[in-house]
Each structure stands twice: as C-alpha cells, then as structure tokens.
Design a protein around this nucleic acid. Sequence first.
DNA 1: CGGCAGCCTTGATCCGCATCAAGGCGCAGA
DNA 2: TCTGCGCCTTGATGCGGATCAAGGCTGCCG
Lengths: 222, 222
Amino acid sequence: MALAHDYTDVQHLPVPPRTDDTAAGLFRLSVSMTFAKDEEIYGQDEDADLIYRVLDGAVRTTRVMADGRRQIGDFYLAGDIFGLEAGPAHRFAAEAVRDSVILVIKASTLRSSGGDVGRLGWEATRRELERAQEHVIMLGRKTACERVASFLKDLSDKSGGLRVVDLPMGRQDIADYLGLTIETVSRMLSQLQASRIVSFCATRQFRIVNPGGLARLANQTL
Amino acid sequence: MALAHDYTDVQHLPVPPRTDDTAAGLFRLSVSMTFAKDEEIYGQDEDADLIYRVLDGAVRTTRVMADGRRQIGDFYLAGDIFGLEAGPAHRFAAEAVRDSVILVIKASTLRSSGGDVGRLGWEATRRELERAQEHVIMLGRKTACERVASFLKDLSDKSGGLRVVDLPMGRQDIADYLGLTIETVSRMLSQLQASRIVSFCATRQFRIVNPGGLARLANQTL
DNA sequence: CGGCAGCCTTGATCCGCATCAAGGCGCAGA
DNA sequence: TCTGCGCCTTGATGCGGATCAAGGCTGCCG
C-alpha cells in the first residue's frame, strides 16, 4: 500500500479548469492535489469532511474483508465527484487507479449552503445511488459474460459513446468491480473479441466492433 | 400482478401517528393509502413525483429483466422511507410484500424546501446509498451462507436487536434479494438451524440462538 | 538490445450453487 | 374435518465460474 500523501503539492485554484457542467459550480473554492498510482486518497473508516472531484486520472473506491476478499464500489473518471457515500465516516477507501489530479472541497461548506448548492449535492448523491443500484442488478442477476459486456458498454457510454475506449484500470480491478476472478474476466474479454463484438488494440484499449451485439449481451433493463 | 390501486381509500392526515423520529417531520402534510399484498405501489419507468413512508406492513423494490430474472433492491419496514431512487423516473418498481399502509408526499414539495427539510431529504438519500453499497459487497463477494446470515442479522438489527424476529417476506423474495435461488436460501436456513445459530419457531419467525456465531458468519466488514 | 518483473492469457480440474424433481406442510375455504 | 393449493424443504444431478497451474507478453531499465 502506498504511503500517506504528504500534502506538499497542494495548490489553491480559484476556478477549476472545466466549467462546462453543473458540478463545476460546487468546486469554486477548492484545492487541487495529485496522487500517484495506487496511492490512498482516503481510508475506510476515516472521518469524512471532504468531497472530491477527479480533474485528471481515475479513482476506485474499495472495501476489503477480513480475509482479503476485495470489492470495488465504483470507478470515477475525469469530471466525476466522489466521497459522497460518507455518513460520519467513509465506508469505502478511495485510491488512485493511476496518477491523478483531484479537486477537494470541505463537505461542511456544501451541506450548510442553502438553495441551489445544497440541491446540487443532493442530486450528485442521487446519481451515486442510481449507479449503486445498477451495480446491485449486475452482481445479483447477471452472468459473467453479461457483466463484462455491461462494463465495457458503460465505459464507452461514460466516454461519450466513443467506439475506441481506454481502460484506465487493470484486469484485477475489473474483476473486483464485477465480483469475478481475474481469470474469468480475461476469458470473457477473449470471448468477446473472438465473437467480433470488440477488438483489443492494446491490453488496455479496445474498439467496439459491434455496438448492437454489445448492447444485447449487456442485457441492460433500462 | 395486482390491479392498479383505485385511490378510494385516500385519507388526509395532518400528522402521522409516529412522531418519534426525524423522518416524521418530512411527512407532516401527507396522505395515507393502503395496498394489498403484492399490489404495485409504483412501476418501473413510472414518473416519480412522490416519496413514500411505510406506516405499517412491508414493501419491496424490484427490477425484472427481459427474460424474467428478478432482483429485489431493498425491503422497507414500518418507519422506512422509499421512492428516493428516482431521477425523472423510478428505476425500480415498488410492491407491498403484505397488506400495508403507506404515507405519501409530493417530492417537489420536499425538494423545493430550503434549509432543514431539504437536508433531511439528502440525509435519507445518503442512507439509501449506504444500504445499496452494503448490498453490493454482499452480492459481489459473500458466499450463500454469509448472505443468508447477513440477511437475518440485518433484519434483527432493524427490529431493534430483538432475539425473536418475524420474516415479513417469503423465501422467493429473500432469494431475489440475495441473488440466490429459493432452494439455496432454504438449504442455508436449514443449515443455520442445524448448527444451532438460529431456530425457526414458524416458517416466518425465527429466534437467534447464537448471536456471536451469526455475526461471525455474516462476515460484516464494518 | 537483452533481461527482468508485473500483468495477462490459457488450460485443467474442482466446487458451490443452479437446476430438475419429488414430496411435505400449513392454511383457507368448503 | 377434509381437501386442495401455494409455499417450503430435501434430494440428485449439472454447469458456470473459481481455483490451481503454467507460460506469454510488454514495457521498463540497464
């Protein structure tokens, strides 16, 4: 596990670089920090008074059971907000999937804001809830093939529906997100490629060859 | 499936009967409705302008895939609030597990409220998110035995830690909540009883014989 | 350019849960 | 009380994904 962050690279940004979406408004008075690959952003059980936004890079939230079994709660890419799942304390840890730049704001600032700003926080929490519920469906009732297909499709959708998509995370992270083993993920990816649904340009970049076929395999209910 | 509710039993209640918790404050201007066992409270994809609170009975939220596979999102007992998962439309349907009385309030009333009331809605949404995330851990990384043990323990905790607990739902509902089949749920329940962890007084009522053993099997991480 | 380490793929086998099948039990209604 | 139906349990068998095992690829650093 990476060492605790030393906070030497904190910079004050009056305005975040991306201002093209509502979330940006929440982060007007924020601080930017960089995290190395696999570095912890916050720990499980840690007090939660901060909310985060990915500026560049990718983040995973994880929970590890006593015997080492790991579940990834979600992945967050550039523009995404995370850290909202906290009551008094975080129930998941957050780690950088690769070198990342993160904006940070005090949660108490947000929560005490009346009107619009408070409503934006609520909206963001509601979207998190929706994503968690989709995840429940996936883990409860989808086959390994459907899970992997859903994962690739979601990633493409998040990237604006591009045909060529980068995978920021490794196979083990995908497995721990989908509730599978790394071997099963690898086999399903090979199988999807063999069926001409997708095609891997590199280990961590694929092209969607047959979007209709992918959607059918993903078996989305909505 | 039950017929649509005919709304003939709507009554106006100036104050809900239970006023001993914060949630009650949200429902000061609400309407009470009764639903028969298995009756639909709202449908998947249905527009969402209402928020609900269980006064008496039990409710499940469900999502059905094209081929009939069903996943239950959560169960709600007396005092619980549901219907918050909606963006523009509900992503799960809600049905009465047994004859139930439900309080209903317009969501727009809540959302537009500034200050305290708005914050209570956010808090309730955040608790929903926490429950969904626990569900993700369960479905992603727990064995059948751990899932059933967790389920019984959660139910007991929700009922205030009682040793004798009623199961409002049938075995099929439990299976669809835990991502298992009804046969596996039944076998695990028999197994827990054989190991003197719990003891079934009736099909739908059990006693926790060994709380420590149950907690150990549940394998909670927090 | 060569060597090494971490990540990924592929194959063989195993096992937990699903599926298929056959009653048992309890409750409701005659 | 009897009867029937829905719900639940239990047993036998099958299969999807886990586990165990053995390399292959790729990117980094000398």
